[in-house]
Design a protein around this nucleic acid. Structure first.
Lengths: 200, 200
DNA sequence: AACACAATTAGACCAGTCGTCTAGAGAGGG
DNA sequence: CCCTCTCTAGACGACTGGTCTAATTGTGTT
């Protein structure tokens, strides 16, 4: 209705369309045209909403991580479960979303990280703050799990969280290369061992 | 001298130039022009040596892994060292090459994997066979380390090799995002623990 | 109803893309 | 000495890229 509302919708539509397309094809390989056609927004409008393709990419990543972190927060706060179970739920969902049949798992971070972090400082920083947020939350959950006794670790919680996140990033990359969810099995088993949880 | 020799040189020059440029900027973001100018080769020659940009990318990856694997073989066969030390040497060199001052560590696999594996089946397969080769060699070295007693692991050698490779891929990605070699420290410490080696 | 002013769009713009194609340069064999 | 065949040369075509200016549309106030 109001102008402001429509404006936000259009902006959001562009971002949503881009998220799908860029999660499949990357950043440089996708032209604004394709995104705008898919969003039903005329080309001329783009620079009304975003200053440049780079600024657009930054906004895309920022929005992506915002949603991602709130979902992560709720996964790690689900009532009635131990922190150990909550953590494994998180990784189970990661696996489900990345390994889905539509080969384009929707993790923008994995898809764009290598390509974009040498290309645009702004996008790199968006990636950095988003991934740091993820690791921090995982570290807190691990710490809480240790405190309640559902998780036992050898290293410090933060280092453990970092290590597990790297492991799952690498597994995602490898799943893309191999077109198989097998790497997630390996990552999952390792995660259980690192957290001293019983095998699946 | 001979025609054949020169031909190989030109081809190799193009590939060498591309390896540097693409390790920095990715695949789609780089035009053939830039590569050819940098290699001092006219455009007309390109299509004499390669059928398309995609076929070129495939050859680039194949050549990259060929070199990579022979270097890996010699690292893992250095005389007078235990397998445990050889393995840690490999990762130390990984760290050195990736974390170097010229921010463009030269690992094509990390740089191109996510971008390219959804873009070209041929390139994806090159990536797949190359990374599989790396993991196989690591697995053999771990197995030999277990046999000689310098390495102790909980899981099977192959699964351990996979897991460690994922960990280091993820750490490399994160090092790119953060522009810090810190992730390698975490990966290194974890690797030591997984292999039951004394802390550094 | 008419105006001012902001929000939005159409389309031009040029640099750059990949790939093609026609000439010709250069070397080896006979 | 010529003929042939590999390789070089770079202009060219058809097209897409991101960006920007100029015009259009819409809104709210008088």
């Amino acid at each position: 209705m109001s102008v402001a509302r429509d404006t936000i919708d259009v902006r959001q539509n562009i971002l949503a369309a881009a998220q799908q397309i860029m999660a499949a094809k990357g950043f440089s390989a996708v032209g604004l045209n394709e995104i705008l056609v898919s969003a039903g927004v005329p080309k001329g409008s783009f620079y009304h909403y975003f200053g440049s393709k780079e600024a657009f990419g930054e906004a895309l990543l920022a929005g992506y991580f915002e949603d991602y972190l709130t979902a992560l927060d709720s996964t790690l706060a689900e009532p009635g479960l131990s922190h150990a179970v909550r953590l494994m739920n998180y990784w189970q969902r990661w696996q489900d979303s990345q390994g889905s049949l539509d080969c384009q798992g929707k993790c923008l971070a994995i898809k764009l990280a290598a390509e974009v972090s040498d290309l645009s400082e702004a996008m790199r920083l968006a990636l950095k703050s988003g991934t740091t947020g993820i690791i921090e939350r995982l570290a807190r959950a691990i710490e809480a799990g240790v405190a309640e006794g559902s998780v036992v670790i050898e290293d410090k919680p933060y280092a453990t969280a970092e290590m597990l996140y790297y492991l799952w990033m690498g597994a995602s990359l490898m799943a893309k290369i191999r077109r198989t969810p097998a790497p997630f099995e390996t990552a999952s088993a390792t995660t259980r061992r690192i957290l001293s949880l019983p095998a699946h």
